[in-house]
C-alpha cells in the first residue's frame, strides 16, 4: 500500500501575460506516493477550489510523456531532476515526506507566461513552418519500399524524431537557445534519403528562424540533461556541420540561378 507525504509547495502564480507574478505557498498534506506529480497538483487544486480559491493553472494532456504539453520547472529544473522523465511521468515516490518543492513555469524569453504555470511555446512551430517538412503532396508518394533505408539510419532518424517538442531544452539553457529542439527536428529529416532534396534549404531556413526567436548556443549541455527524451547533443554537432555546408551550398545555388 502506498505511503503518504506532507509537502510544502512554493508555486508561481501570475494572473495573465502582463500581470506581475508572485510565489504562493501551499501545504500539500497526505499525498499518496503512488500519485504522479500532476495528480498531486490535481489534489491541491481540488482543495483550493473547496476553499473558494482559484486553482493553479498548469497544462497537461497525454500524461504519458509523449505529447510535450506538461511544462513545469521543479526545484529549478525543467521537468524536475529525474533523468529522461517528463513532468507528467514524475511520481511522488521520488520525493520525501517534509520536502519543500518550488514549482515555476518553463522560463525563457521565447516562452511568455500566459497564466500561472502555462506558457506560450508557439515559437517552436515557427521553426517547423520554416522548413521542418519534406515537400510531398498527398498522393505523390512512390511505393514505400522502393528506397531501402539502412536500419542504422532509420534508427538514428527515429532517435532524433523522438523529440516531443516540450521546450525543456530551451528552458534549461542559460541563453534560452533552441538548438537541441531544432537539431532534433532538422536531423530527423536530414538523415533520411527522402530528406536530401531539401536538406540545405531546410537547414538554413530552420536555423535562421530559430535565431530570430531564441538565444545562441554556447555548448553548456543543460538542454540534454533536462530533455525527457534524452536527445543526444551529437545532433547539435551535426546541425552545426550541416548549417555551415548549407550556407556555402545555398550561396552557390543562388549564384548559379
Amino acid at each position: 500500500m502506498s505511503k503518504h507525504l506532507n509537502l510544502t509547495l512554493k508555486v508561481w502564480r501570475q494572473d495573465g501575460p502582463d500581470a506581475q507574478g508572485r510565489f504562493e505557498t501551499y501545504e500539500a498534506r497526505g499525498i499518496a506516493d503512488d500519485a504522479s506529480f500532476l495528480e498531486m497538483l490535481d489534489v491541491v487544486n481540488e482543495r483550493l477550489i473547496g476553499e473558494n480559491k482559484e486553482p493553479i493553472t498548469f497544462e497537461s494532456d497525454c500524461r504519458e510523456g509523449i505529447c510535450g504539453t506538461c511544462s513545469l520547472t521543479i526545484n529549478g529544473m525543467p521537468h524536475g531532476k529525474e533523468k529522461g522523465t517528463a513532468t507528467c511521468q514524475l511520481h511522488m515516490r521520488k520525493f520525501s515526506d517534509g520536502d519543500h518543492i518550488t514549482i515555476e513555469p518553463f522560463r525563457a524569453r521565447a516562452f511568455p507566461v500566459i497564466r500561472d504555470l502555462a506558457v506560450d511555446r508557439s515559437a517552436l512551430d515557427r521553426i517547423i513552418e520554416a522548413g521542418g517538412f519534406i515537400s510531398v503532396n498527398t498522393g505523390a508518394a512512390p511505393e514505400a519500399n522502393i528506397t531501402p533505408v539502412p536500419k542504422s539510419v532509420a534508427d538514428a532518424a527515429m532517435d532524433a524524431a523522438a523529440c516531443i517538442g516540450c521546450g525543456a531544452c530551451v528552458a534549461a539553457c542559460p541563453n534560452s537557445a533552441g538548438q537541441l529542439f531544432t537539431a532534433a527536428k532538422v536531423q530527423h529529416l536530414n538523415l533520411l534519403p527522402q530528406g536530401q532534396a531539401e536538406r540545405w534549404k531546410r537547414t538554413e531556413a530552420m536555423v535562421e528562424t530559430m535565431e530570430e526567436y531564441f538565444g545562441s548556443c554556447t555548448n553548456h549541455g543543460e538542454c540534454h540533461d533536462a530533455c525527457p527524451k534524452e536527445i543526444s547533443l551529437d545532433f547539435i554537432a551535426y546541425l552545426n556541420r550541416d548549417y555551415i555546408k548549407a550556407k556555402v551550398k545555398n550561396r552557390k545555388l543562388a549564384s548559379q540561378s
Partner: peptide, 22 residues
C-alpha cells in the same frame, strides 16, 4: 497501402529490417 507510401515519403521513421526494407 497509400497511407504507408505517403507517411514514408514524409519521412516517418518506421521500423526497418536489416536489409533496409520496412
Amino acid at each position: 497501402v497509400n497511407i504507408i507510401d505517403q507517411a514514408v515519403a514524409q519521412g516517418v521513421p518506421f521500423a526497418r529490417e536489416y536489409g533496409g526494407r520496412l
